[in-house]
Design a protein around this nucleic acid. Sequence first.
DNA 1: AATGAATGAGGTTTCATTCAT
DNA 2: GATGAATGAAACCTCATTCAT
Lengths: 206, 206, 206, 206
Amino acid sequence: MSKRERNAEQSRLDILQAAEAEFASKGLYGARVDEIAALAGINKRMIYAYFGSKEALYMSVLQAVYKRMERAEAQLVADGLGGRDLIGAVIDLYFDFLAGDPQFVSIVMWENLNKAAYLKALPVQDLERPAFAYIRDAVAAGKALGVFRPELDEQDVALSLITACFANFSNCYTLSHLFERDLCCAEQIEQRKIETRAMLLAYLCL
Amino acid sequence: MSKRERNAEQSRLDILQAAEAEFASKGLYGARVDEIAALAGINKRMIYAYFGSKEALYMSVLQAVYKRMERAEAQLVADGLGGRDLIGAVIDLYFDFLAGDPQFVSIVMWENLNKAAYLKALPVQDLERPAFAYIRDAVAAGKALGVFRPELDEQDVALSLITACFANFSNCYTLSHLFERDLCCAEQIEQRKIETRAMLLAYLCL
Amino acid sequence: MSKRERNAEQSRLDILQAAEAEFASKGLYGARVDEIAALAGINKRMIYAYFGSKEALYMSVLQAVYKRMERAEAQLVADGLGGRDLIGAVIDLYFDFLAGDPQFVSIVMWENLNKAAYLKALPVQDLERPAFAYIRDAVAAGKALGVFRPELDEQDVALSLITACFANFSNCYTLSHLFERDLCCAEQIEQRKIETRAMLLAYLCL
Amino acid sequence: MSKRERNAEQSRLDILQAAEAEFASKGLYGARVDEIAALAGINKRMIYAYFGSKEALYMSVLQAVYKRMERAEAQLVADGLGGRDLIGAVIDLYFDFLAGDPQFVSIVMWENLNKAAYLKALPVQDLERPAFAYIRDAVAAGKALGVFRPELDEQDVALSLITACFANFSNCYTLSHLFERDLCCAEQIEQRKIETRAMLLAYLCL
DNA sequence: AATGAATGAGGTTTCATTCAT
DNA sequence: GATGAATGAAACCTCATTCAT
């Protein structure tokens, strides 16, 4: 192969990107270092120079992937919504984010299958999930305003919301087969978003 | 190793059981045939004699795992419930089944990461999911009785129900870390069951 | 599988026949004991009961195969020919035998690739090749009669004769490819027989 | 093992050479990749890096082996002989080549036992056998000059020549045993060469 | 910084052979 | 005599990682 430009930063990014694709589709065990190097168009040796090991590279990918979710959630702040609107916005955000970033979904699943072992090893400040705080605030505000049911627990709501969104993406392949219908396509996802919003609001509101 | 009893049926079952544990925790790629043989207390060669290959063994496990879900769902028939009660019973069933069978959860997740490639290759008659039909009937009956909202689509309801249950188990490790709290323990699961039942019924009922 | 008739002699023969086919097509290393058992329609264990080991079975096959050649050559005695006629008859015999018994050809080739190691280990009385003696006598007689060239050495003639016949069968596959023409078919073999007879007699006769 | 020189070309050649020896003596099935690696003094992994698989390595060996024959035959061109002299030269060439290259003989035999399956898969331009053309020309020229018998078919002659030479080498082990005499030694080969030349010319000439 | 060659441990699979019935 | 289950050694091949340039 012809020589690469000497550009450490670009090389690092190329490796990360290739690794994310490989880890998302095959997991930590199934991913091949050779494949990542080939995908990145880089010499395999560089992966070790930059990241040290396959596991360390996986952790860098994990961090980058959660960072994207964090950045998406950060937009909620800017919008300045509250109550029903914020809840609706969070659902839209999650559906749109997960639909647009299937590698996030895959890697979170791998990580759950690993019992979150690598996530736990990440430095903690790298994992802020601002939406959690916003959801809690929104529920508290909704209850204060008499819009939401007063007996709601904020954390329960956050969990209901996240889980109700996530499984639509994480399980779409097996469910598509069992329902004999493509549940991964854009129209179905849109339909699921509408239903999920209705379900969550029915659950929250008086 | 000491000699094994000569019992083909038992050997087959031992292999299947060991393989399920290994596949559930490490996936198809991560699982090691040597490890499965050791776990089953059997000579590795027998795995090939009985199942042909690691992939074929994985498919047998997949089938056995879904069979358990099928058998669990079959109990709904016996109960003869309808409307709200049936929906509540389905949620209880799913929570209890998933809580009691974490290997089912893991293997379904691996299979989704495989884009259901092996599930699709299974003979179709081996995958009846009777609950789907019961959910549909229950929704139709509830609508006819004026208990459920008339605009509900039966399949949407089934999907909402399944996804709302499943992600509580599939994602409990990463969520536990992010929420800094153990969400996989029995009490939390019980709490999630209650909330999920409330959410679903709020969504379904007039 | 249903139980076999209890018939030791028949079982032995079935095994020998299956083994010969397997060894002829794949050689000692390539042949599989399982395959031989399946071909013979017999339990693998019987091969060990009757023959002791794969190598011993191969030697039994080797012996059986050379026995066929011996029996074919024995017919020359009965015919009572001499001189030119005997030489012609030997060539016909070899061509017809080799054409009709490709497994003999293959096994002799495997054995040469083994540097005749197993042949050497066979008990010597099992390998009479009467034709050699007849060829020698025929050459001596032909010389005495003034039909054959007097300087001929009997053993040279025997070797010329055997080699000139054999390679037409042993090498027909590679030669067919290199000559871009099927040299293994009956017509070609017949043509080679005619040419070989002409060549040998041109060489022998004054 | 001590570290090897970093020299890809040399490593490739070492592997090829070791593989040829191993394949010649044991065939494709009997040859062991570990043995080849040990013989080549190289890490087994490199065999797969350079050749991809045992079968592919065998094909490379096959090609290299036939290349040697091709190069030997190419010398005939340079000599510029014709008629009887060319035929004599071809016989000498074949005897000398086959005597000096027993691995060629073995590998051609293995390949015949494979029914030339791998030879057929080789790219066709890698298998020029110039001697065939020269033999044909020599026969035609000899007939035109009235030295050779006019009814001769060029291809028949080429086949008679090749087969008459080859079997002296391919079958020397079994024949040595049956004739109770070492037919593989240099003197015997020389004697066979003389006889074969005499036989071929007796057959060709008026 | 970047490369291609090289390595050793370990992966799945296959095989001849033996045991228990 | 006949069977099917069981075994351990070894086969081919792959992988993450390191070395020399």
